[in-house]
Write a protein that binds this DNA or RNA. Structure first.
Lengths: 197, 197
DNA sequence: CCTAAAACTGACTGAGCGCTCAGGTTAAAA
DNA sequence: TTTTAACCTGAGCGCTCAGTCAGTTTTAGG
């Protein structure tokens, strides 16, 4: 693997676990076994490195979420919602640090002044909400999901799922024990009226 | 107001809006019109100052939430849930910076190694979840809320509400336009079966 | 008014930071 | 083998920061 790639991966880990300010470029260099100057040969500034990390995360994240649904069909729109939640929790389990990166304030603060950063975050969040948005649209057609404002409902569902993930990362509650309640809650929010299973 | 109090308030604002590392004690001193050394006369270290800030926030937060329900009665447990959500959103509106402080990673990282910090966070979060927990207990008795695992359901509701607040602070979505969907979703999650209004 | 403690000051320190740069190494094309 | 460009190095620069301290001012009790 090229040194640039090694730097990018180590930086992802450090930015995610320690944050932007608390990650020092000297530490990153030491961690990857390179000289301090090498970092700045590949990335002009620390901020540039961060943007490269965020872009890398975006690409991998979008890939993972979109490829899962390619060519798949489900018995109902609601089932697709359930699979989306499962997929989200699975991705968090496997690539926790990517979501930690997104759970920090830094990218959102940077997005206020940096258009590239704003664009990356927009892409990530529209990918994530589309996940639920699309499933809701399908569910509305096949009758498995109640008539609602798609985008808003998708955001509520996303808030709920991501909120539980946060409780877990902040060590406030073990997410695994909440999954059943979580999907139950989603079912109730989305279920069409007068059709208890 | 004493200089110590002025320092505490300015520090709350700075820690909340800029984070721990990005807040400099020189900046804090300048902001409050004091000399650099004064900060360290009142608070031994930067971390001590942070803990004082967090304790202050805890006291005010718990006060605000507990005093609201003192002596009040509601037509149903579910109505109490609705009022709790309103109160939470109102508090976020009035004292946004206090919640920003809690939406940062720093306190949770500190809690891993500092017992005082962990205790403060525990107190804050049990106050917030109790808000919903108690209302659910009442609602289960008066029949306005479905039979559920109290704590877990309270956490789901809290995740949902706080998640929407986060969408707002991160400038991803304007919370006000989601409030109706939010309470609707809570109603569906908590409503007892076969009793559509 | 005197005294002593409490409150406050600001110049200073040493450590750590992002970033630069002059020069060295590697690898592939000519 | 020579050339050239891409890659890599680490000492070092300028700056910011949390924290110190010797000394000054303010406050309050006797």
């Amino acid at each position: 693997m090229s040194k640039k790639q090694r730097l990018l991966e180590a930086a992802t880990y450090l930015f995610a676990t320690k944050g932007f300010k608390d990650t020092s470029m000297a530490e990153l260099a030491k961690m990857t076994g390179t000289a301090g100057g090498t970092v700045f040969y590949h990335f002009k500034t620390k901020e540039d490195l961060y943007l490269a990390v965020l872009e890398d995360v975006k690409i991998r994240l979008v890939e993972a979420f979109e490829s899962y649904f390619e060519g798949k069909t489900f018995t109902s729109g609601f089932e697709r919602v359930e699979r989306a939640i499962e997929l989200y929790l699975y991705q968090v389990g496997v690539h926790e640090y990517r979501f930690r990166l997104l759970h920090r304030q830094y990218p959102y603060a940077l997005a206020q002044e940096n258009d590239d950063c704003r664009k990356l975050l927009e892409d990530i969040y529209s990918c994530l909400t589309d996940l639920f948005d699309r499933a809701i649209t399908i569910g509305k057609h096949d009758g498995s999901i109640v008539e609602t404002a798609n985008r808003k409902t998708a955001l509520i569902i996303f808030s709920m799922v991501d909120g539980v993930v946060r409780l877990n990362t902040y060590n406030l509650y073990h997410a695994a024990t909440l999954i059943e309640e979580l999907t139950n809650a989603c079912r109730k929010v989305l279920a069409p009226p007068h059709s208890e299973e």
